[in-house]
Design a protein around this nucleic acid. Structure first.
Lengths: 238, 238
DNA sequence: TTATGCCAACATGCATGCAAGTTGGCATAC
DNA sequence: GTATGCCAACTTGCATGCATGTTGGCATAA
């Protein structure tokens, strides 16, 4: 998903379609497997074995693994196989700071647009927030999680900064398992909806400082609820 | 330079030393060549040729190029060679937003420490700022640039977030050429020193919001001076 | 029982060969 | 002179072989 295109470059130049390569396939398959815990963290795999399982030779697997390492999802131990990365509480702290930084700046940028732009953004974000609210009333946790993800994705993407989008994407992949795990444990779904509305309001008002502050509040509260939860679970890593 | 270690993971786990591989060598050499413009942007190289020049086979070069692509420094055109990425004004805009986001959050974190930590950070930052001031008085532009780089590097590194450090490092690599070019054109060196002092003061006061604001001011002013400069040079890319 | 050391199995690093896609230029037709 | 089409040269994608580093277990000795 969206990982087909190359890295840099602010769009614009003609998108040369990349024919699907085995490397891309391996990258996607491995990432998927890691995200849905088919490869549990701490698992010690070998490129040979992965290659066999995916029906290709070691080369494309090796290259895919390099990319996954760059993404922080695995670690290549020279001549000792690849290790699926676990997430320590300290990683979660780091990840939240990155999110706060990037989403905060995105919110500032969004609140700094002309009226028409702000209204369009606010409408899009409000739609996702409404979906969250409804999912909450239905008690539909997965739907709530998806709508929440869409809200935050839109928040960053609408800022129109490809690098920020990419950073958030990478960070989201890293923290995917944590989100899945904690979705079931969270009590503050209602608070999230309210905070989202506050963010939207600040954007609509065209008040960058307030938008930034509301994003900070939202993410830091969520983090401060999440970390003790992980601790109480005795999870030193996940 | 600090690119030897793997990606993720908040330090802590024992550092298994990686024996230097040809891939690492190729990565470092290529990056260096790109940063100092031995490979000019837009240059169309072939892996074969690079391999020959570095005295190794295509394989390690290919893998190094993958990493450079992940860093946004080159683009691999399938079966048509590798393209050294240029920087468009829009890229510069994106880059500054990322810097503002990350450095801003770093400054907040620094200002949120207990007294001792803040004072240590402030002292370190003040030392670099003093070096800038002296370099300015001597008219020593390169020294000014190095001290400025050290200031901003310390600002982020002292926040103790490996992911933020890595993001800034990547972004710095991407914008290296722009910095080198514009160092000669800048007039506002004195203003930078003053703004650095304001950032330090806010951190020392323990006022996160103010520290964030001062970083914003500093970077956005610099950006707004830089962009017209690039435009007036008629540089559509560099 | 415990400690030591050797070794076979195994993992990746790297080189190289072959397959397939892309390009630029030359020959040809008009 | 201009347009068309074909082909040779070139480039990467991928498979595979060999070299080398790592490991866990078994045999051996204390």
């Amino acid at each position: 998903m969206a990982r087909t295109r190359a890295a840099g470059h602010a769009a614009k130049d003609q998108d040369i379609e990349k024919s699907p390569s085995l490397v891309d396939g391996a990258y996607a398959a491995l990432k998927q497997a890691i995200l849905d815990s088919s490869f549990a963290p701490g698992y010690h795999a070998s490129e040979q074995e992965i290659a066999l399982r995916l029906g290709m030779s070691r080369t494309p697997v090796h290259e895919a693994v390099i990319r996954l390492q760059e993404d922080g999802l695995v670690r290549v131990l020279s001549r000792r196989g690849v290790l699926i990365c676990a997430l320590a509480p300290d990683d979660v702290r780091e990840i939240y700071d990155v999110i706060v930084a990037i989403e905060g700046r995105a919110a500032e940028l969004l609140a700094d647009q002309p009226d028409a732009g702000r209204e369009a953004v606010a409408a899009a974000l409000a739609a996702e927030t409404e979906a969250m609210s409804q999912a909450w009333r239905r008690g539909d946790l997965p739907a709530w999680g998806l709508a929440d993800a869409r809200f935050h994705k839109a928040l960053v993407e609408r800022a129109g900064n490809g690098r920020m989008t990419r950073i958030i994407q990478t960070i989201n992949d890293q923290s995917h398992r944590a989100r899945m795990l904690t979705l079931k444990l969270r009590r503050e779904l209602e608070a999230s909806v309210e905070e989202h509305r506050a963010i939207i309001a600040a954007i609509l008002e065209g008040d960058p400082a307030k938008a930034l502050a509301r994003v900070h509040d939202h993410r830091l509260r969520a983090r401060d609820e999440l970390l003790p939860l992980l601790d109480s679970f005795g999870l030193k890593h996940l």
